[in-house]
């Protein structure tokens, strides 16, 4: 089942006097429950593409549909709030909140009512290897790997079907990278989540179900 449909999306910007095309009439359909990785050269438009499908930026030409509804119809803010979750290279946790408070924040933002938020939050963090004592700590006191696990737990906490990640392992060592990738893999497998990860790392892309390469503004399936 198609969860995210990209239809003839073109994105360009002016670079000096020259119109630089990043995405060129790009179309693609992302299936539910799959783990995708997007690879490509630096400046190929991977992050721009992720921003567009994350609803952080509006498409100027073409359409993006989430479950048959265009993002314009859903509303970009609503889409980000209720339908997707983002994981960043720099974790982007709210640094003055504890791990559990970051999770609660994600739970409380969606229109889906989550009961016993704190209990669910602790359980979720425990699943990602963050015990109760660490859960109550400020996130700034956690290691990079732990922070990224909290960020993934936060993504999962909002109970969305589509998780987008931009270089989620970029700041992590090798062993932690493997750990995080296996988490993503399991999310797709066990929870039927669709995972789209933008990465430079071949170790990450090798673990995904589908590898997409961004070439000349178009997505090409490599695997």
């Amino acid at each position: 089942m198609v969860i995210l449909k990209i239809e003839n999306v073109t994105y360009s910007y002016k670079d000096g006097g020259y119109q630089r095309v990043i995405l060129n009439d790009l179309s693609y359909e992302f299936q539910e429950g799959k783990f995708y990785t997007i690879i490509g050269e630096s400046g190929s438009g991977k992050t721009t593409f992720l921003s567009l499908i994350a609803g952080l930026e509006k498409v100027k030409s073409g359409k993006i549909y989430f479950k048959d509804k265009s993002l314009d119809q859903i509303g970009y803010s609503n889409y980000r709030r209720n339908d997707i979750a983002l994981v960043f290279q720099h974790y982007n946790l709210i640094n003055y909140l504890s791990a559990i408070q970051n999770i609660s924040l994600a739970m409380s933002k969606t229109k889906k009512k989550i009961k016993k938020q704190k209990y669910v939050g602790y359980a979720l963090l425990k699943k990602f290897g963050i015990g109760k004592s660490k859960s109550d700590r400020s996130v700034t006191k956690l290691s990079g790997g732990e922070q990224q696990r909290v960020a993934i737990a936060r993504a999962l906490a909002s109970n969305v079907e589509l998780i987008l990640a931009d270089e989620p392992t970029g700041n992590l060592d090798k062993s932690t990278e493997i750990e995080i990738i296996s988490i993503f893999k399991n999310l797709a497998l066990e929870y039927n989540k669709t995972i789209i990860v933008v990465t430079h790392s071949s170790d990450v892309s090798d673990q995904s179900d589908i590898i997409l390469r961004l070439v000349d503004g178009k997505l090409v399936e490599m695997k």
Partner: peptide, 12 residues
């Protein structure tokens, strides 16, 4: 940045 993160999460 904090506000940017919150907005990216879709917080109103």
């Amino acid at each position: 940045i904090e506000i940017g993160i919150l907005l990216s999460m879709g917080i109103r």
